[in-house]
Simulated scan of single mutants.
Amino acid sequence: MYDEDDYLQLSGIQHFAFCRRQWALAYIEMQWQENVRTVEGKILHENAHDPGLKEKRGDLLIVRAMPVHSCEMGVSGECDVVEFHRVKEGISLHGKEGFYRVVPIEYKRGKPKEGEEDILQLAAQAFCLEEMLCCEIEYGYLYYGEVRRRHKVEFDNAIREKVKQIFAEMHKYYEQQYTPKVKIRRKCNACSLKDICLPVLNKNKLVAEYITKRMQEEENL
């Protein structure tokens, strides 16, 4: 169990899974830059993250920008949307009649990705909800703005263990204030922190070694 002062941002798991260095630069060194992708994603989330919007559609209750946390994983954040479906067997909600099934929904720009970063973030939200509401959540949805439809994600034991392991690793990096090196990959070109990260300099040598070599070359001219 973690103290609240040690909580990490839940959304960081997406960045960590994409690139550990990107996460460390943003969440440990507090460096960030916007690009087209991050701006589009922010606009999409602003439409979903309106805490003033709570809808009741028959047996369906929709809550937006719901704060969540987990003492076990040591994280906190917000769910874009959480749907509460009225069912015969489920959890009870304060001030509401009957029982409900909990379904988290995360909004993303673009279309479904090859990697599992989005899946891990959604799963982390679900596990926070499970801890807070004392329930079990079997699935959730990722909504992609480009294709305008939901993608169902089931939370099996493998994804549950992976989320816990990743958060444990994130806590370790954060405690050590450690920013790892990076290997150049094709996805580096799409990273908003490319100019800060300077992946080319980290390809085969340390930055200090690079600078020393360039100074020596200048002296020999």
Rank of each mutant, 00 (worst) to 15 (best):
E4V: 14
E4S: 11
D5V: 03
L10N: 07
G12C: 04
I13R: 15
H15T: 09
H15V: 02
W23H: 09
A24E: 00
A26K: 15
M30K: 05
Q33S: 11
R37Y: 14
V39P: 06
V39W: 05
K42C: 04
I43Q: 13
E46Q: 04
G58P: 11
A65D: 09
V68P: 09
C71L: 15
V75D: 01
E78T: 14
D80I: 07
H85C: 09
G90P: 10
S92P: 01
G98Q: 13
Y100A: 01
R101I: 03
R101L: 12
E106Q: 08
Y107W: 14
R109P: 05
R109K: 06
K111Q: 12
K111W: 11
P112A: 00
K113P: 06
G115E: 07
I119W: 06
L122C: 02
L122A: 02
L129N: 10
E130G: 07
C134W: 07
E138C: 08
E138V: 01
Y143G: 06
V147G: 00
R148M: 09
R149E: 12
R150S: 12
R150V: 05
F155T: 04
N157G: 00
K162H: 15
F167D: 06
Y174G: 01
Q176R: 15
P180I: 08
K181I: 09
I184N: 06
R185F: 00
K187A: 04
N189I: 13
A190F: 10
L193G: 09
C197A: 05
L198G: 05
K203H: 00
V207L: 13
A208M: 10
E209L: 11
E209I: 04
E218Y: 00
